[in-house]
Amino acid sequence: MIKKGIRAALVLTVVTVMGLASFTGCNSEDDTPNNPTNTAADTEETATPSGTTGEIAVITREEGSGTRGAFVEIVDVTIEGNDNLTLEAVVAPGTSVMMTNVAENPLAIGYASTGVALGDDRVKVLYIDGVAPTVENMLNGTYAIQRPFIIGYNLDTGLNELAQDFVDFIFSAQGQDVVADRGYVPFVQGAPEYSPSGLTGTIVVNGSSSVYSLMQHLSAAYRELNTDVTIDVHGAGTGHGISAARDGLADIAMSSRDLRESELEFMSSLTIAIDGIAVIVHPDNNIQGLTLEQVRYIFLGEVTQWENAR
């Protein structure tokens, strides 16, 4: 009995010590968020009044990503038509990894779809050639880095009645309202009203992870009107979506770039929205904007210091 008591006491002591240790652990974790502000203050002190200095940390998406393809093409980060984005760039697989990387690194520069970047306070969105990536500026075409969001279907098999109804919804007033609400530019002006069809069944949509979040909101709005329809939206990537639609595994493919000629042989192409690509930096970076040319040189790896980027 006494032995047991001693053992219990021992275990209790250990648990308390462990608990204390984890507490101090928490404290040191609490310190970590302070560190970046400290370093930011240090940089401000040491830096010239004009702002952030140091080696630019270029962050890019992976080869084959629709966002990267569109960015490289529009900004012309190429050599003889080939993607020539600096190999020194950190490769962030996926939009969320990109956002976290830029949000965590005071010297980072990256890019992401405006729909994502404008809604994320952790990063700062840059002016390009003095133009902010707003809906207005994309509609009037003054913002330079923009691209279409496209849906497509297999031309051989066509759309079934249900998928056709969903496409009709996307191009209706309600559907284009969802597009505008999400921060994208609606492609169809003065679209007709949509009235629910009463159809039932399942629609499979697959493709670009950039279009994915918009498509989820479109499908949610559609299912409010058609409660008996299930829509499976997958964001496996543009290439995946197109091959899935070709092989009959998806009804509708999503793409965040213009379809290639080889793809147009078997796919239709319907533009549902325009998306800008925002160039993003850490919020502590005091740069406000860059020219398209500067962005190009940074991502080519020819400008490597922040002090040379102005």
């Binding site: 970590t32 560190n35 980072a108």
Partner: peptide
């Protein structure tokens, strides 16, 4: 690693952390 180790290495050892 992404939110703790990468900033830690960047601030204490240099480089961009990745």
């Amino acid at each position: 690693g992404m939110v703790v180790l990468v900033p830690f290495v960047r601030e204490n050892f240099g480089g961009n952390g990745n």
